[in-house]
């Protein structure tokens, strides 16, 4: 398997939902990766659509950057609906 690359598998569990990461597997090519994903990750009706991508093409953010990346979003309360006070009689908005 030295030459069978690792693939990440993403599964859409039902129509209307996002593809979600399910796991990984080895396959010689994309076709085989999709078939293997079907055989390995949808044995119990877990999916209706499969994406595969070779793991080496995934670029990830660095955990060290976590603070700089994600904390600043913490204090932007004005992005959330509850930030805005509205009169009681307004039932739905």
């Amino acid at each position: 398997m030295k030459n069978w690359p690792l693939w990440e598998v993403f599964i859409r569990s039902k129509q209307g939902l996002n593809h979600i990461h399910a796991g990984s597997l080895h396959a010689a090519d994309a076709e085989m990766a999709i078939e293997n994903a079907r055989d390995v990750y949808t044995r119990r009706n877990e999916g209706i659509s499969i994406w595969v991508v070779e793991s080496k093409y995934i670029h990830a953010s660095n955990p060290e950057d976590q603070g700089a990346f994600f904390d600043p979003a913490n204090n932007k309360v004005y992005r959330h609906p509850t930030f805005y006070e509205l009169p009681e009689q307004l039932k739905h908005m």
Binding site: A28, D29, M32
Partner: peptide, 13 residues
């Protein structure tokens, strides 16, 4: 079998 699949994938690409 594994070697053949790799070789085929190479050829195909």
């Amino acid at each position: 079998v594994r070697e053949a699949a790799s070789a085929y994938a190479d050829k195909k690409s």
